[in-house]
Amino acid sequence: MRNDSGQQAYGELIETLREAPVRDLAWLLLSADLLSAARFPAALAHFDGVQAAADIAAVSPQGLPPAPLPGVAEPVFHSRVLHDWLLACDANPEPLREMLARGESHRLGRYAEQLLHFALLHSPRFDLIAAGLQVRDVRRGNMTLGECDFLLERRADRRLLHWELAVKLYLFVPPEVPSSPSSVLDERAIQFHWLGPNLADSLADKVARLLGHQLRLTSLDAARSALPAPGPWLPQVYLKGWLFHPLGQRGTLPQVASEAHGRGWWATLDEWWVHAHSMLPGRQTSQRRQTGAWAMLPRSRWLAPARVDACAALSLDAMRAHIEAHWRERGVAEPLLIVSLARRTDDAAAGDWFECERGFVVPDFWAPRARHRIEELRERADAAARRALAQTADDGAPSI
């Protein structure tokens, strides 16, 4: 977990940055991980501020780390170099914007890949060897096995690293009615109850794909001809995101999740409406004028905490009307990410509003569909596991 000074410095930096892509870049590089380095069964990647004892020894003039470190490296205060570089990017965002314009930035995952790609090209800690490398099996007609997001070399010790990047937003869907007090969800079941807002996948699916496929790409015999160096490659997970708990509740966290994860809520429109009204201060107070604003975030702005122009900040009543109009115009009620906003009275740009908290407003039918989707995803995963087991048995059977 980040120390207090690191959290404070990161928060101050995010509020200082004005350009949306630079804010997203800072969030991607410096925000808390979605996974726990101590409990996830694979190594986590960090862009800056994290080194194991062996890494520090490799660059320390005395050959020893300056202070005892725990057995598992965790994020610590980011470096002044990175801080100053992000401020420079904010002052001149054109190079970043030009790179984003060349890519597929309308998809959140691809957008995050472009951001990290840009950062790695400018990093003093890493040499980027390849990005988005397609791995194919030449022995099976060049069948695509997958894509390595980033292959790089760490300058401190020349270690070859294979990074798999993902940005995920998951909502916890509690079981409808526990069958008995003893029906406690196990780790895998809990992961299935964390679903994406569009119900396409779950945390369980992502963990399984990372461990069972993506992180194994650079170790496959069939991939060696496609790799720029024979290795060995150290696979690491770069997973950022937000976890959304039911409004007014605490969702059951899986063991693999970081306690410091980015946090939000989800609720139906009426649930949010009642809650938001209950949180309003007195109607004539200056505090209400400072904190009574809301905004809806487009998908492209789901990463960093929002900084919103005054013209985009809505009153509570206008926010509800905007949600209802959006659903009506689209012809379908989809989960929408909204943020409550506050104005920093000591900020030079008095017109800007800053995110206080975020949450998904979902249609009434979303939770029942989500519970049904959990069962579908679990059955699909179980069927895939059975096929893999059968294939393994067939591959190991003696020929006749």
Rank of each mutant, 00 (worst) to 15 (best):
P178A: 13
L151K: 12
G146S: 04
L160G: 04
E176I: 10
F126L: 01
R139A: 14
V177N: 13
G132I: 02
R158E: 12
V167G: 02
F150H: 07
I129R: 11
R154S: 04
E176G: 11
L145E: 01
E147D: 12
A119W: 04
R158P: 01
A112P: 13
E147S: 02
D157V: 06
V173L: 14
L151P: 15
D157W: 03
H122F: 11
G141T: 06
E164L: 08
L115Q: 00
L121H: 12
L152W: 13
V135Q: 00
I129S: 09
M143A: 14
R154E: 12
R140F: 08
L121E: 15
V173R: 05
A131Y: 13
A156Q: 09
F126R: 00
P174D: 03
L152M: 15
E176H: 15
L161D: 12
P178N: 03
S123F: 12
K168Q: 06
W163T: 12
C148Q: 04
E164R: 11
P175D: 01
I129G: 02
D137P: 09
E153Q: 15
Q134G: 05
L145P: 01
V173I: 15
L161I: 15
F150E: 05
L120S: 09
A112K: 06
R159F: 06
F172P: 04
L133V: 06
G146E: 06
E153D: 11
R140Y: 04
G141D: 03
W163V: 15
V135R: 00
L171V: 05
Y170W: 03
D127S: 09
H162D: 02
F126K: 01
L165D: 06
L161P: 08
A112V: 14
G132Q: 03
G146K: 01
D127A: 05
V167W: 15
L152D: 12
P124I: 06
A156M: 10
L145S: 00
P124H: 01
W163G: 09
G146D: 01
V173A: 13
F150V: 09
A130R: 07
G141F: 13
T144M: 12
R140L: 08
L133T: 05
Y170E: 03
L152E: 11
R158Y: 07
M143L: 14
M143H: 07
H122Q: 14
D137Q: 05
F118Q: 03
L161C: 11
